[in-house]
Nucleic acid binder design. Structure first.
Length: 478
DNA sequence: CCTGGAGTTGTCCTA
DNA sequence: TTAGGACAACTCCAG
């Protein structure tokens, strides 16, 4: 029986370093059979979006390389596939790292119990979070709903530090099995080549993730607290897609950051960055304890909110044609790169929900399809936050003004000019409000508003008033 | 059980 | 020009 493999089921942990399930399997000395299953059947509404699929293709390719070509991939219902593999290989042991989306929790639970009946040893590990969501609770045993106490009391002041990352095991014996399905058979790549602009943007995979982390720590951490607000500056980590697919572990980030901030005297910036990792933990906690988070308003009174349903406005938002440059720049960055700077995410989110009065679900769905870092916990918690209906949400009267935000955080217009080339020639003064540009300057720049670049699709002042009234109305309803 | 302080990221108006 | 207060009220959390 020594020849039977130990199966390691890769999911959102596409790395070898600090991968608890993989490392534990390697340490048994049994031959390891690494597998990946594209399980669309159980995902329901949350089947991976197009940008995520694109990323996944390259991530699996990279993982397979690091596994010396031993990764076996499958497409279909995970439970059936795993049963088949067990029958075929006579494996008696299966390891994986836990995932926290409700549909995955339900599926994994089913698999675990049915395999247990067949006397298969199943063991799961924590590879994706600093702390287990069921372990971070208030004194009274209920989950936190406010970030600050969650992070301070629940994470920082707990008597255990996040575990130190484990190194990649050096000698691994793999179970030999031929690949019936190739990664390309999963059909994750786009049929029309919309990914040309995205390819240059990212180095996908575990090595790329490590490189990105060290580049960020060496160049971006200094002045992070302030610089992270400016989309044209290199002060954000851009680690979100790597974290989502598990190409790097949060524990790795945590301890590397600690070391750097101590060594370079960047306590303030480092602490702030760590708190962003804390937000990721918080979102996962919310999703774990409130599994309806992706669909239901956390604050029930928002069920009565009078949303608009202007499909044309939605289309303009999606395609970056609202006439508000900072909003359009963000939406185009998203389309071209699969990513959007955090500050700009808030601006476009506020605009969708509070100026266009469109339901946050529209934003959530669009982001789900177009972001390479689309993550159920982060995406739904953040949309609820900006819409004002979430846990610890932005107060209703906080409506971002896209003109002010642009002038404040893209002062010299670098970001706007990059993504909206058709107005790049405008002087800074008019870059955030092209419609105020004197006609002779417009002529000189070769811009015809309404043609070269759209006129604003809504009046900021009027729509803001509308939003405030709408919020007023649900207050009276509740 | 009661109580008091606090709560990611803004904007607008006024003096 | 700039700084400070209003914008609401409520829930959450810890002592």
């Amino acid at each position: 029986m020594t020849n039977t493999p130990i199966i390691v089921w890769f999911r959102q942990d596409l790395r070898l370093r600090d991968n608890p399930a993989f490392i534990a399997a390697a340490e048994t000395g049994q031959p390891v059979l690494p597998i990946y299953i594209l399980d669309d059947e159980n995902a329901g509404d949350w089947k991976m979006g197009a940008a995520s699929q694109w990323w996944l293709h390259h991530s699996l390719t990279s993982l397979n390389k690091n596994l010396d070509g031993n990764l076996r991939v499958y497409h279909g219902d995970a439970s059936t596939i795993i049963s088949d593999i067990i029958t075929e290989t006579k494996a008696t042991t299966l390891y994986w790292n836990r995932c926290y989306e409700p549909w995955r929790i339900a599926r994994d639970k089913g698999i675990k119990s049915s395999l247990k009946d067949k006397h298969i040893h199943v063991q799961s590990f924590n590879g994706s979070l600093l702390f287990e969501p069921h372990a971070v609770l208030k004194e009274d045993g209920t989950p936190y709903k406010v970030f600050t106490p969650f992070y301070r009391k629940g994470c920082l002041e707990r008597n255990v530090e996040p575990p130190k990352p484990q190194d990649t095991p050096d000698a691994i014996e793999y179970y030999y099995a031929t690949n019936k399905t190739q990664i390309s058979d999963l059909k994750l790549l786009p049929t029309i080549p919309w990914d040309t602009t995205m390819r240059e943007e990212w180095t996908i995979g575990e090595d790329g993730a490590q490189k990105r982390l060290s580049e960020f720590l060496n160049n971006g951490l200094n002045n992070y607290k302030e610089g992270r607000n400016h989309p044209a500056q290199d002060n954000v980590s851009r680690l979100s897609p790597y974290l989502h697919f598990g190409e790097i572990s949060p524990r790795d980030i945590w301890h590397e950051t600690k070391a750097t901030m101590v060594a370079q005297g960047l306590e303030k910036d480092g602490d702030h960055f760590l708190s962003e990792i804390g937000w990721r933990e918080f979102s996962n906690n919310l999703l774990y304890h409130f599994p309806d988070l992706p669909r239901e308003n956390l604050q029930k009174k928002f069920d009565y909110f009078p949303w608009c349903d202007d499909q044309e406005a939605l289309k303009a938002w999606q395609t970056g044609q609202t006439g508000y440059p900072i909003v359009d720049a963000g939406m185009r960055e998203l389309w071209q790169t699969g990513y959007m700077h955090n500050r700009v995410r808030m601006i476009v989110g506020s605009f969708l929900v509070k100026n266009l009065l469109l339901h946050w679900h529209h934003g959530e769905s669009w982001f789900w399809d177009t972001l390479v870092d689309a993550d159920l916990a982060n995406n739904s918690a953040s949309w609820q936050w900006i819409a004002g209906c979430g846990a610890d949400a932005a107060p209703y009267f906080r409506v971002f003004n896209p003109i002010t935000q642009g002038q404040k955080f893209d002062k010299d217009g670098t970001y706007i000019r990059k993504y909206i080339p058709e107005i790049a020639a405008l002087p800074e003064k008019y870059l955030n409000c092209p419609w105020e540009t004197p006609q002779d300057i417009l002529n000189h720049c070769g811009i015809t508003l309404g043609k070269t670049y759209p006129n604003p699709i809504v009046d900021l002042k009027v729509s803001r008033e509308q939003a405030l009234n709408a919020f007023q109305s649900i207050k009276e309803n509740s």
